[in-house]
Every structure is written in C-alpha cells, then in structure tokens.
Design a binder for these strands. Structure first.
Lengths: 331, 331
DNA sequence: CGAACTTCTGTGAACGTGCACAGTAGCGCT
DNA sequence: AGCGCTACTGTGCACGTTCACAGAAGTTCG
C-alpha cells in the first residue's frame, strides 16, 4: 500500500497539486470551497507531506542539529542537559522542526558534524558546552545559523547565546559566605575554558579581591569525581579553610564526600556553597546552599534566538538571565 | 555559492553520475582509475550527498526516531536515560543514521509522532519507557520497525526489546536482605504499568513468598519525591520494618530522606536496598547497596536489535541481561 | 464597456539522487 | 571466428514537492 501523495489528495479533492500545496504552505488565495474539499481529502487519505521532496526544492530540511561537544564519557553527567533537551524538543516540535542529536566529542565526530551541516542537512545548529577555541564553531557558523546555550568563549559576538549571569552568581555566593563571617573562603572552579568556569570565578574574585589567592583556588571539570579530588587537594594545601564555593552542585556533592572523609563537618567546620540548584542540591546531606540558575528560561531564550535566526534575523542579541541565592543547610 | 552536486563531481572526475553514485553506495564495478578520480573530485569540490534527494528515491531517510513517552515534567529525571541516548547517538552515527528526538507525553505529541513515522520520516523507532496499553505502540509498529529499551508490557511479542532481568534483580536483593537477617522487609515499587515496577516486585515476592504482604508494599512513580512519600507511608503503616527494597536508586534517595526525617538510622535501624546502580547510588549518605543493571549493554543490545530490523530482519529475539548485587553501606 | 485589479487555479519545470537497463571493451574458450 | 562471460560505464526515468508563471473569473471604477 503506497503512501498517498499530494497528487492523490488533489485528485480526491478535485483540484490541482498547486492548490493543495498552497493550502499546505499557508498561502492565502485558496477558496473556502477548495479548502474544505482538500482538508477532507487529507484526512480521508491520511496524507502526510513528504519532507524529502519538499526540502529538495526548498533547500530547507525542517530540522535542527544539537551539537554536543562534551567528550562522550562525561556527556550528560550533569543533569542540567536534560532541561535543555526537553525544552528544545518541545519548542521546536511546536514549529514542526525536528531535533537531531549529534556528538562532537572527538575528531571523527566533529568531521561528521561539519559535513552534515555543510551538506545542508540541518537548517540551524544548537551548540552545547562548546569549549574555547574549538574550530568546529567557525566551520558550523559559516554553514548554518548557530546559537549556543551558554556563551562560546571568544565567539561571543559570532554565536548568539542565552546564559545565566555566572559572574553575578559568583558574586552572590561570595557575598553570602562573607556575610556569614567566613574568613578563609576557597573555591573550586569549573574548567577554565568554559564560561561557567571563568565567570563564576570572576564573580568570586570581584567580592574577595586579593583574598582570592591562588592557594585557595582549585579546578575541577564539572564531574563529581573532580569535585572530590579538588576538595581533597584544597584541604591538603590550606587546611584552615572555613568555607568553599564550588562552581557546580555536582562537584559540590563530590566535595562533600571529601570533607566527610577528612572528618570535617558541614556547615560547622566548613561551609559549602554550590551552583546550579540542580536536583543534586536537595539530595545531598546536608542539602546544598546554592545559586539557582534559571535553566528552563535559559533554554527557552536559546530556542527563541535560534528560531529568530531561522526566520532570517541576521543579528540577534545575547540574553543574560539573573541568578538567585538559595539558602539550604550546607552554608 | 551553490552546493556541489553529484553532477559536479562527475564532471570534475570525467565520469558520469552513475559511476559516482555507484562509488558512493559501495557498489563493486568501479575501476580503480575512476575511483581515484572521483575521490579526488569529492574532496576538491567538498561534495556531500543530498539526503533529501536520496531519500526521495530510496524511500529511506537515514534517520531513526527516539520516542519518549514519559510525561514531560518527569522526563529525564532518571539519569539512566543519558546512557541510552549517548549510546544510541554513537552507534547510529557509526552507520550514518541520525537520531531524531520526539516527545510523546501528551495527546498532541503522540499524534505528531504517529504522523511523523507514518509519513515515512523515520526508518525506525526506538521506544523509551512506553507504558502498558499505550495505543501509540501499535500505530508505530504498523508504520515502521520498532524496538524498545525495556519491554513494552503486553507487547513483548510485537516489539523486540533489550532489558535487564528485573525479576532476577528483585530476587537478588530480597535474598540478600533475608540473608542479612532482616525479618520485616518492605518494598517500594515503581509504577505498576512498567516492567521495572512489576518485575522487581515479582522477584521480591519470589523470595519473600507470603511475607510480601500488601501492608509491606508501597508504590512510587520513579521520582525521588515519590520515594520519600512512599517511605513515609510505610513507616506510618508498619513502623517495625527493618529493611526496605526500593525499586530505583533515585526513589531510594527519597526514602533515605524520609527515614532520616523519622529519626531512623540507615542501615542500623532500617537497611535500604536500591536498584539501578546509577550515579545517585554513590552520592547518597550512606551510599546505596543496590542492584546493578547493565545499562550501557542494554542500550547497545537495543541498538543492535534496531539495526537488525533496519537491515530487514523480520523477527528478532528479545535480549535479557543479568543484574548484579552491589554491596555498599545502606544494607 | 473596457481596463485594471483582486482572487483563485492549473501547469511545467526544477530540485539531486538511485536504479534499471543498455551498452562497450576485453578476455578466455571452443 | 564466434560465443559467453566479466568488469565497467553512461543514460533516462522516477521519486514528491514547491515555485514562477500564465491565465480565468469576478469586481471595481473611470
């Protein structure tokens, strides 16, 4: 049983291809009579437009690629991805655009992604966790409209993005810890080639000034294990710290493990501040005082930017959303 | 600057379309000379095949839809999804098949998904967390090769699947708890319209027999909050329980919260067993004794089934993988 | 009454590919 | 020489749609 084509619909409705096509594409200039007949014919035949044929002539595919630059083993470790994926699928589905997932963690994958986009197989690109200096970015930006969830370092003016105000968040947590009377405040940052890594530290330094010395800073890679490692390192290096600001909740969970292993009580001996207000924040013991970043809104804004670019907007402005301190028990 | 077509490549290589096409599709019968010339022409022109044109004639799209039936707000709460998504993208990418994500949590979405697949926009379907009695299943199965990660209840013979041996896992945990001398063992199950919900309880009942009374069973919906609620309910109903088997780590994390709130020590007063051995299991306090299910392997096997069906295999057998007890500190 | 305009409709061409088919050249064998 | 076989190549058609264009029918207006 063959799939019905636009011809079949036209025949059933007693009109021509062209008229059906016009109706399908929301053209005006379709008489009410024709419209009714066609609509009936469509439901009767169960017609669905053939996207391949359509995109052959329109040069558009009706799909968008989500490019995940994280190395594979680390991919999705952070629950924050889920929100973005969910929102992206939903919002795009509303416009009948499908979301194609692509890995770009290694050389082969990157090559594939670039070929895919260059080949015109996606109308737009949604970048996720793209690292500074990644050559992929320019290649993709040259081939299709790109936006990013979170800034792409060094390409802030090339790739529009929506992001939380990481620097503000860093300040908020630092100010809170200071206001609680902590004197030796350490920080575990994210990777220093990501905006979250850099800017949360900047905010921290904004408040702490010279007190944010190198000895009080350790670096993680967003993973829980790296948080644990960095915490252990800090305790060894400067045992007298009384608070630590960890740049993500997941890493903070790791830090808690290290603190526990070292026999430090949280928050009595060492206060711990996280970042994200992700689901982890409430499942740790004690629950994390953290910086809430408006994940869903960020995702929505990112998609708005993407849709705007798909609709032909040449230049769209980045969107930066405020963060908020959430006080629980860890600090 | 127009995108190069197969014509351009053929012209540049001094052969005809047909020969280029044959090379592209791995046909034999391409002379070494032609092959070399074409390959050079391809890299020179930067040619990428136009999938739309190809699928117009082949009636294949080179893409597979991942259908997520979970209601949206609950989607991805369980970190287990990530593994499946990651493996699926990777394995499919190797075959140059792209993964399209589709939501099917509400009526409108389901409609869209069915139209999409009926319209021939995906060569196959990868079902995820499909609930018993979902009419979507039959509609999709009629339209394209379907497989599922985890059995689809009531359609085990229609939709091939790969899954962990949930019943075995249930038995393993129950046996362990019994062997540790616990007498009043409760269980928090998953939703009873999911295989994990049903079969983990079956395994539990296999071991406990008549001791698995209704009063010792509570139901959750896989969410952390539901685990907490169910635990509170159990404590109220039968305060003298000394162990509880929770059908997922995430729910177990919730249960721990409820136990802590009730002043019960884990594992001294009440032992807690989880299921999944997901990332949550190590971040709770105490770390969870749990049943490891081989998530990555399950995902791989699911993709194997899908690929087999895409290659034309009519009937493929389900794959059930063994689980394993992982002893940590909660029991 | 006819021109100009609006609203609607049908038609041919094009998009880029794969496939069936026809055909060629070379070679070995009878 | 003639035949059959293998290895390879080129060509026409079809896939299902959109788009530009031409044109019909009706309406308005000078």
């Amino acid at each position: 049983m063959k799939r019905p084509t636009i011809h079949d619909v036209a025949a059933a409705a007693g009109v021509s291809r062209g008229t059906v096509s016009r109706l399908l594409n929301g053209d005006r200039y379709v008489s009410p009579a024709a419209r009714a007949a066609i609509e009936r014919a469509i439901t009767e035949t169960g017609y669905v437009v053939n996207r391949a044929a359509r995109s052959l002539v329109t040069q558009r595919t009706g799909s968008v690629a989500m490019v995940l630059s994280e190395p594979e083993e680390r991919l999705f470790e952070d629950p924050n991805y889920s929100t973005l994926i969910r929102v992206a699928i939903r919002r795009l589905a509303e416009r009948d655009i499908s979301l194609v997932m692509m890995l770009a963690g290694n050389a082969g994958d990157r090559e594939r992604v670039v070929r895919y986009v260059r080949g015109g197989h996606a109308d737009g690109v949604l970048l996720v966790t793209t690292h500074a200096g990644d050559p992929l970015v320019d290649a993709l930006a040259a081939a299709a409209p790109c936006v990013s969830c979170g800034a792409v370092i060094g390409r802030e003016n090339v790739i529009p993005y929506a992001a939380a105000d990481d620097r503000l968040g860093g300040r908020q947590m630092a100010e809170y810890l200071v206001s609680r009377g902590h004197r030796r405040i350490a920080m575990i940052t994210g990777p220093m080639d990501t905006p979250g890594g850099i800017q949360r530290l900047e905010g921290f330094a904004d408040v702490l000034g010279r007190k944010a010395s190198k000895r009080l800073i350790a670096h993680g890679d967003w993973t829980q294990a790296s948080g644990e490692r960095a915490m252990a390192e800090l305790l060894e290096r400067t045992p007298d710290i009384d608070a630590v600001f960890v740049a993500s909740d997941l890493m903070a969970a790791g830090a808690l493990t290290a603190l526990r292993a070292a026999g430090r009580r949280v928050p009595d001996d060492v206060a711990v501040g996280g970042f994200d207000d992700s689901s982890v924040a409430t499942s740790t013991l004690p629950p994390l005082t953290t910086i809430r970043q408006p994940l869903a809104e960020t995702a929505h804004e990112t998609i708005n930017l993407l849709l705007a670019r798909l609709d032909g907007a040449e230049k769209v402005e980045p969107v930066v959303l405020p963060t908020e301190l959430v006080i629980r028990e860890s600090a």
